[in-house]
């Protein structure tokens, strides 16, 4: 019986990227509309809401670029842009801790820094940078792809729990919930890329193994042929030697 692999939508990177795009669009539109409804001043909307949505907008550009052929060609460069974005984000979240220390700022910093290390170790793998700077020796490389994913899931869920305690309005609850789903889906996308790289590595290894076993079999056959030839060449010599003894 052949077992058919059941691929759920969670294992499809194309669907995950579409989900992330839709989530970002909902977050941006929802936060803008809620800000307008709650009679915030223009300055407050510009200052708070645009600041809140700027990272989402930049990530949206990344995912939309991936849908084009140019984006696919410059995939590594887009990943570099994403890594730099999350590096800046983790630095700014550290500065947020200095400005107003709270459990939320602490957890968002932990989430951003773990996302940055995750992106750095997955997206640079198998690139020229990885080989040139010998990044396989990095201590963060010892953490597996699954562990990174679950760390981010746990951190985003705990951040959601803390945020839910603080929130009082339904809109804020919805926004916080969407944000945590976005983090999980985004890390799932990175996880799938890490899985793809591992599978590729295993494929390369198995194909090399096949080639090596093929070569060994060929060598064995050649050796058997040579042995047979040697046996054949030795037998007539013995007969000749016995004949010569008989003559004497």
């Amino acid at each position: 019986m052949e077992k058919k692999e059941k691929n759920s939508w969670l294992d499809n990177p194309s669907i995950i990227s579409n989900v992330v795009i839709v989530l970002i669009l909902i977050i941006i539109i929802l936060s803008q509309s809620v800000a307008i409804k709650s009679n915030l001043s223009t300055y407050a909307i510009l200052n708070n809401v645009i600041n809140h949505n700027s990272i989402y907008l930049l990530v949206l550009i990344y995912f939309l670029a991936l849908k084009t052929n140019i984006g696919k060609k410059y995939f590594n460069y887009l990943n570099l842009f994403l890594i730099i974005l999350y590096l800046i984000n983790s630095v700014t979240s550290f500065l947020t801790i200095l400005q107003s220390f709270s459990l939320v700022s602490l957890f968002s910093f932990a989430l951003n820094i773990s996302l940055f290390t995750y992106l750095f170790h997955i997206f640079f793998k198998k690139t020229g940078v990885w080989k040139e700077f010998k990044l396989e020796k990095s201590p963060f490389n010892d953490i597996s792809n699954d562990s990174y994913f679950y760390i981010i899931v746990v951190l985003s869920v705990s951040l959601l729990a803390i945020n839910l305690i603080e929130t009082t309005t339904i809109n804020a609850v919805l926004l916080v919930l969407l944000e945590s789903i976005y983090y999980i889906m985004f890390s799932r996308y990175v996880y799938l890329y890490g899985l793809f790289l591992n599978k590729k590595h295993i494929k390369e290894f198995s194909s090399m193994k096949d080639i090596a076993t093929g070569i060994i079999e060929d060598v064995k056959e050649v050796k058997e042929d040579i042995d047979e030839d040697i046996k054949k060449s030795k037998k007539p010599k013995k007969k000749k030697a016995s004949k010569s003894r008989g003559d004497k």
Binding site: S31, V34, A35, S38, L40, A44, N47, N48, V49, I50, N51, H52, S54, I55, I88, N89, T92, S93, L95, T96, Q99, S100, S102, V104, S105, N163, E166, T167, T168, T169, N171, A172, L175, V176, E179
Partner: peptide
């Protein structure tokens, strides 16, 4: 970005600016 902080994502809808975030957009 550090001099002109913004309100956190949740507090801005609650009309009380309890947590202040680094102004990423300005930077």
């Amino acid at each position: 970005g550090n001099l002109f902080p913004t309100c956190g994502s949740i507090s801005e809808f609650n009309s009380n600016c309890s947590t202040k975030e680094f102004n990423f957009a300005l930077m």
